[in-house]
Amino acid sequence: MERKKGYAFGTREVVYSALGAALYGVLSFATNMLALPAAGNLAFRPAVCIPMFFGVAFGPWVGFISGFLGNIIGDALSGWGFWFWWDLGNGLMGLIPGFAASMITDYRATRSFVIADLFSILGVIVGMGLASLSEMWVSGVDLNTAVVGYFFPAALTNIVNGVILVPILMVAYAAIVGRTGR
């Protein structure tokens, strides 16, 4: 069984942070290229499950860097530029599920799925909430616009993606945990 993750940031965390970020960036870019269904500024981005899952599996710092840096990489690949508050919001979407890491021992248990999903939902609400509200002082929008124009479209799709895909990744990860020798 692997060493149980905490708040330490050693070699293992460095590598998994980098891996999570690269995966999030590549999968965001790839699913954008596949022209999956979307409406208005409501993007269908299944890759948001990556920082959440990396948080759940490897701890909060890995989750944070996966989300924060992964969003920067995805934007760099697509040519979108640099949007600090949205990068930070994506980081929080990985950080908060990471607080559930120490509560999860069996990646196949229903209890673990519920914990991971609850923390993922909380992460989306806090992360997208921060990014959306930051537009109030960055772009000068009012609260209603921040909520209707930014928060709802981003949070709803991210929650649905996370709630469905994080448990699927946990089950798949359970199959390889024993092989790592850690």
Partner: peptide, 30 residues
Amino acid sequence: LIAQIRKMAPLIVPVTINAIVGAEDIVNAM
């Protein structure tokens, strides 16, 4: 929407899990 997201799993899961398995070698090397 939910069915479509679930159908993305055959793409996302193998790429992620393969990457995690390969990353163990990098951790050991470092």
